[in-house]
């Protein structure tokens, strides 16, 4: 098995993302990933990254630089969607995807990266902690409508 190559996401990766999502969640949601991929394709296609190994997408990390959200005026690199094929975890793919996306954020002028993690996703929180992310002085709030 060759080493995974990190590259920019393309429109031909939609099925690869759908596969990983399906492997993780058990749900087949191609239309969801089409919508998400097109969003990035039309805004900053160089930002989202995938890991490709032996011609197969084994990981992805989607995000972009935005400013002005939640009163945070400075350009912020937002990490929004992230997944690694369960059969290839532990090989450093997540780390390499994160490094590639953060490098892109820096190129786009961002000085800070932000993301949100569900409280139940301890594994992801642990991974992001290992990547240098710390708790932000913001609290996510919600209420049913």
């Amino acid at each position: 098995m060759s080493e995974a190559r990190i590259r920019a996401l393309t429109e031909l990766d939609i099925d690869g993302l759908t596969r990983i999502d399906e492997a993780i969640t058990g749900r087949y949601r191609p239309e969801v990933w089409e919508q998400r991929v097109v969003y990035y394709m039309r805004r900053d296609p160089d930002a989202p990254k995938v890991a490709e190994q032996d011609g197969k997408v084994v990981g992805f990390m989607l995000g972009e630089v935005r400013g002005g959200e939640f009163g945070l005026d400075e350009p912020t690199g937002w990490i929004e969607f992230f997944g690694v094929d369960p059969t290839t975890r532990g090989g450093g793919i997540g780390r390499r995807l994160t490094e590639a996306l953060l490098a892109h954020f820096r190129e786009r002028g961002a000085k800070i990266a932000r993301t949100m993690v569900a409280a139940r996703d301890e594994e992801i929180a642990k991974f992001l902690g290992a990547m240098g992310f710390t708790a932000a002085p913001l609290t996510a709030l919600e209420r049913p409508l």
Partner: peptide
């Protein structure tokens, strides 16, 4: 090239929906 990425998606994504 950055704009071309969306052009390719404008081809592939409707085709994906059509084949379904």
């Amino acid at each position: 090239l950055r704009e071309e990425a969306f052009h390719l998606a404008t081809g592939v994504v409707p085709m994906r929906r059509w084949v379904e």
